[in-house]
Design a protein around this nucleic acid. Structure first.
Lengths: 157, 157
DNA sequence: CAGTATCCCAAGCGATACTG
DNA sequence: CAGTATCGCTTGGGATACTG
C-alpha cells in the first residue's frame, strides 16, 4: 500500500502528539485565509500597508490585526524607511525567522503550480552562481544545501 | 539590504498577480485552521473520522465539511477498508495529489521546529537506501532529487 | 463508527468614514 | 499613507443530540 511516508497499516493516532508538532505550532500563527498571502507580499519585497491591501484585497481591520500578530511572532518587523524626497514612512519586512518561511511558501507555490494549475509556474528559481534551475525537495543534510539567499527568483512571462 | 529573494528595493506590488499564483491557488483549499492538520493525520496514515477527531479536536460539523472539500479537490479519497473480523468501514487517505503535499507539510514542520520550538524535531527523515539524514531544501533540478517515497520517517521520542 | 442536525456565540468579512 | 472606529452580515467554532 505504502500510502504515506510512515508504515503501511492503518494508524489509530498520529505518532507525534499535536503539542510536540512543529507543524501544529506553525499553523497556530499561519493558518488562516490571509497570513501566508501577507508573507508572500513581504517575500516579494512589498512592505506597505496600502500596497498589500491593493494586491490581496484584505479588509483593513484584518490586515491590521494580522500585521500585529506577525510582528509579535517576530516573523515581520516594522521598519521606518524613506524614499526620495518623501517623508519617513513605516512598512513591514521579513525578519530572519520570516525569511526562513520562504521555503515553505515556495513548497506551497510549487504544489499549487504543479497540482492545481497547468504545471506552469509564474516564477522560476535559479542558482545565482551556476544558473541551474532549482526546486524545493528533499536533500541529504549537509550535502548540496542551497540557501534561499543564493537563489534568484525571476517572474516568467 | 537583500531582504528577500527578489531584488533589493521596495516593491509597490507583487511581481506575480494573485490570479496566476500557485500559492494563492493552493491557499484557497488549504488556508484555514484545520485543513493542514487533517492532511497531517492522513500523511501519518490516520484514516478514520473519529481518530482524526480525537487527535486534533476538530468539531464534527467542521471535519465533515473539510473532508468533503478535500475529497472534491482530489487531495483525499474516501476508501472502504476492513480490519480483522470487523465490518467494512470507510476512511480517507491521500491521493497522489495529496501525497505530494507532504513536502509542504514537512517544510512547515521544519520551520515550526527550528523557529518556534527549541529546534528539536519530533520526527526524523532518513533516506531508506543510504540512511542519510534528509531535510527539505532547495535542490538542483534533476540532480539529487529524492522522492518523498524513498524517505523513512521515524518519530523521535 | 461515521456521519447529520441543531443551536448559540464568537470571529472574521466587507464597506465606509475618520484621524494624525 | 497608515492606520482606528464602527457596523451589519456571514461564516466558522464548539457543544450536544440523534441516526443508520
Amino acid at each position: 500500500m505504502s500510502n504515506s511516508g510512515i508504515g503501511n497499516s492503518i494508524r489509530r493516532n498520529a505518532p507525534v502528539p499535536m503539542a510536540q508538532c512543529g507543524a501544529a505550532c506553525a499553523l497556530e500563527i499561519l493558518s488562516d485565509r490571509w497570513t501566508m498571502l501577507i508573507i508572500r507580499e513581504a517575500f516579494y519585497g512589498v512592505m506597505r500597508y496600502e500596497d498589500m491591501r491593493d494586491d490581496i484585497g484584505i479588509p483593513r481591520s484584518v490586515l491590521t490585526q494580522r500585521l500585529k500578530r506577525l510582528t509579535e511572532a517576530e516573523v515581520l518587523e516594522r521598519m521606518p524607511y524613506r524614499e526620495e524626497g518623501e517623508r519617513t514612512r513605516y512598512g513591514y519586512r521579513l525578519t530572519s525567522r520570516g525569511q526562513s518561511l520562504g521555503l515553505t511558501l515556495l513548497a506551497l507555490m510549487q504544489w499549487g503550480d504543479e497540482e492545481l494549475r497547468d504545471g506552469s509556474s509564474a516564477i522560476a528559481l535559479h542558482d545565482k552562481e551556476t544558473g541551474a534551475r532549482l526546486r524545493v525537495g528533499l536533500v541529504r543534510e549537509g550535502t548540496s544545501e542551497i540557501p534561499l539567499s543564493s537563489a534568484r527568483i525571476t517572474p516568467q512571462n
